[in-house]
Design a binder for these strands. Structure first.
Lengths: 153, 153
DNA sequence: CTGTGTGCAAACATTTTGCAAGCAG
DNA sequence: CTGCTTGCAAAATGTTTGCACACAG
């Protein structure tokens, strides 16, 4: 259903976004552009709040509101340009979806997030789903632990 | 660190709870008992709200408050008697931790949750952690899809 | 008795919504 | 021009906290 985005640059994502907007009769605004641009230039994991603050800082003239950030993130997520993970304590985080699916290793000490992919696990997940009669659409895997640094503290 | 609870019945969990309370100089109250009992008798996945409503219904004399449910769930979770998963849309859910670790298959159609365990995946997760220098303490894996019923609708 | 636990309501944090004005197409 | 989009503030949601009274130990 959803186009595979592989590893896209900003230009391609922007084009993708404009296409989606057009086909839904939505408008391309400077706020939406600023949010997409910020997500692309900072391939980190944002909370709604932290993304809001960064956009505000980088585009002071825009006078953006937090509601717009929420609305745009929902829009981007619905269309597969952004994906989110919900961490327990740290709340929900978003990242630009310009690379293939991956999962997360999360340090409980310093909060660092490492991305990884493991095809063997993915295959086993498919098997589990099949055994239970499920048609898999998505999955979420987060490994919690201590990174090398935090183990020695 | 945490005792393995295997598959315990209510009596054993109750004893465990009382021991934990005593060793922390906390008190065994009828509210705490009612919450533990309700969790045991209904091995489903509760939200704070749904657990609150059920306890309220089953123990009308108790006149329990939602704050007590939150406080007790935190207490139980800290001590490993309850575990929680945070679902995207459906919010956070709790279940009694009287069986060994397992993960969840979640139907996006009807919300049904199926539990499973898969040692092969667990082993691969350990490997991923090791490759990244992580010391694993915990993990979360949720597979989303459509159950057999919902595929045909 | 003592100090922990409770219900209640207020406080909080986060996200959503209604609205009038702004602006893209 | 039209109607989608915005910022703002209010509302809604989910969770935590302060307090005076209750009650377990």
């Amino acid at each position: 259903m959803q186009k595979d985005l592989a590893v896209l640059g900003y230009e391609e994502l922007l084009l993708e976004f404009r296409t989606i907007l057009k086909s839904n009769k939505l408008k391309f605004t400077s706020q939406r552009e600023a949010i997409l641009q910020t997500l692309c230039r900072h391939p980190q994991h944002f909370t709604s709040e932290s993304l809001y603050l960064l956009v505000k800082k980088n585009y002071p003239k825009l006078n953006i509101g937090i509601a717009t950030v929420y609305r745009t993130l929902s829009l981007l997520e619905e269309n597969g340009l952004v994906s989110s993970i919900s961490l327990g304590v740290q709340g929900k985080k978003f990242e630009i979806a310009n690379k293939p699916h991956h999962d997360h290793l999360i340090c409980e000490g310093c909060g660092e997030i490492i991305e990884f992919e493991n095809p063997k696990i993915e295959k086993l997940q498919e098997e589990v789903a099949k055994e239970n009669g499920f048609l898999l659409t998505n999955h979420l895997m987060q490994l919690y632990g201590l990174c090398q640094k935090c183990q020695t503290v």
